[in-house]
Design a protein around this nucleic acid. Structure first.
Lengths: 209, 209, 209, 209
DNA sequence: AATGAATGAGAATTCATTCAT
DNA sequence: TATGAATGAATTCTCATTCAT
């Protein structure tokens, strides 16, 4: 019984945390982390100021909480790409699309979190170690395998992987900076990117093919 | 004589402004805009707190000042790319290298400015209108011309231009987020990117060619 | 119950506001509004600096708060004078005495508030519209009625009313400027003023009568 | 020669001081002493910030300077009233008119100086000792003499003198507080006041006479 | 004498965090 | 648990005053 109480309790706590994080996401992404007061978060969550501190040690932990949820999303989807059946083009297109599908719905989260991530060394390291580095490592292994199998041109794997990740990530940042074209035509991007990154810009190639 | 006094005065003011902006760049990029106090900037610049306000209306104007210098750098180098002699590959490699040569030395500036740029809507709009939009427009015209001349594969110009810009910009951001690989091997990137973006990843193409 | 909690809450808030206003009155009247820091008020009220801002939007609102209390006092006593039974001399003596009884206990408030009232156009307008103009209008109506009834010499009502008000108000100001005679003999003033303003200085009149 | 240089010098200094005081009067009366910066005064006077400190020890001395000029005006006119020929009514009307003629052109000076006079104990004492007390003393002697001569009703001289002074002074303050009636009809006031203060309000007296 | 850049003490205000209820 | 009043450290910005030119 105590056990069941405990888990009901835990679920309630998780719900409350989630509710506060949702509020934090909303206000942080609108006004930025620093311009947002804990009171803003509390109001948005419909709780009192002090209640925030029952679920989070301090204001920064709200950001960490958002980061953790991002991390979970990333991890949940990491396996997806592993199913690399078919030819390289199919694999790559799927890979790209999946990467973008993770990023796009989290645009608001990035708007909320990225500024502080760039400015706060501690947070940056946390994110790098927990999210970026593992993701990069996984991608490197994928691409290395593809290259081994001869399905991909021989290239510098670490830099290429980072370049591809950057293309997607950079598009997100550009959009966060106000680029409307990217925002409105996001769904078209996977195809454009697939062509660009698989076939390249060079006309010679395209024509010969 | 008054004239010369005036210009000497102006030069002194410009020097002082520059000295303060240099200090702001240093401390902002290290601790972030919000964690840095005006006093930190003053100390770093070797002046009194109040002196800052002789040259800048408020703390945010320090950021705008850094942004303006970035803008000037960008504009100074905008013409360079216009010299598009030779074949597309040469043009593109030059274009890429130039883009990166602008960004790389300004990595610190971006570390200082980007977080606030992402978080502050007003600043964001300023940067977008003054820097991003014009730069994108110029690039679109370049690429459109190249495509017309048949030197480049037919592609969606707006999205492709943004994708390429994002690749470079995203690499910068990824590096700012702590990726050591990008930081240490930055000089190798132009070549890797040229291959990636001109020829693509697809082994078929590479082999057939 | 919620209702009672609410009103208890409100009473607490009103108490706190009053406590802070009392402190503000003390320190403002001693050192002047501008020479007094918010910290001074806080210390005098026995609260922390920040607490002031829970009850007042800014330093000036403390002054407005004092002004409002003055206003309330004035309004509460406005009716009193309406009971104009008896002859004109009785009415006038009562009127004068009442006017002075309102002013005199508020001498400190005026010391605190008047300087800023004279210097701050916005505040001045507020006070003029909320207190002075209505009070003058009421007085004009009283005196006009008395004149109509033939109980008072025919005179220019607006200027006479202002002259009488000024005599009382001016005595207060003179006392605030350091005149000890007025301060020590305040209670004798209503009688002296009644004689002066009803009978005049002219010996001829006095003798003939 | 040194002497003449000296006096030329002195005249120049006096002129400069006057120019700065005029500027101070203008800006103080518009914005109030505390809301006005030394830079405001300097700009209004058409000199540099530092120049102010060549002629005045500090900001408060500007106020003292204005007060001194007021003092001089008062003293210059003190004798005027001494010419008390004719009957009491003529004397009193002349006295009143003169008092008001001193005050009225100095309304701006009072707007500039009075708030600080009320708020600053030191300044208040200075003004009281240098201006108010002597003026009151002179007036008391005048009125005492008139009373001795039987030209004036027997009254409490100190309080009556203060009451009369307050009527005039209070009208000025009321006008500074925004009363338009007083401002527009100032010239009519001496007559109204003469009637009020000499004959009184009481209809009985007026009718019998 | 005049200037005005530089100074730095000081003030208003904000806000993360605590804690009694 | 939840509340929100209270706290007071911290921060931005102002401005009287100084002083080298």
């Amino acid at each position: 019984m105590t056990d069941m109480q405990g888990s009901a309790q835990e679920k309630l706590v998780a719900t409350r945390r989630g509710q506060i994080l949702d509020a934090a996401l909303r206000v942080f992404s609108e006004q930025g982390f620093h311009r947002t007061t804990v009171r803003d978060v509390a109001r948005a969550a419909g709780v009192a100021d002090g209640t925030i501190y029952i679920y989070f040690a301090n204001k920064t932990e709200l950001l960490v909480g958002l980061l953790d949820r991002l991390n979970e999303t990333a991890q949940r989807n990491e396996q997806l790409a592993a199913s690399s059946a078919g030819d390289f083009r199919t694999f790559f297109a799927a890979y790209l699309r999946q990467r973008m599908m993770i990023l796009w719905p989290n645009a608001r989260v990035f708007q909320a979190v990225l500024p502080e991530l760039l400015a706060n060394a501690e947070l940056r390291d946390l994110y790098f170690r927990q999210v970026l580095a593992p993701t990069t490592a996984v991608a490197e292994r994928f691409f290395a395998a593809e290259m081994e199998r001869g399905r991909m041109r021989r290239m510098d794997i670490p830099l290429t992987v980072r370049a591809i990740a950057s293309t997607v990530f950079g598009l997100l940042v550009l959009q966060l900076l106000g680029d409307a074209e990217i925002a409105t035509r996001w769904e078209e991007l996977p195809d454009v990117l697939t062509t660009l990154l698989l076939d390249g810009l060079d006309a010679e190639k395209g024509i010969t093919a």
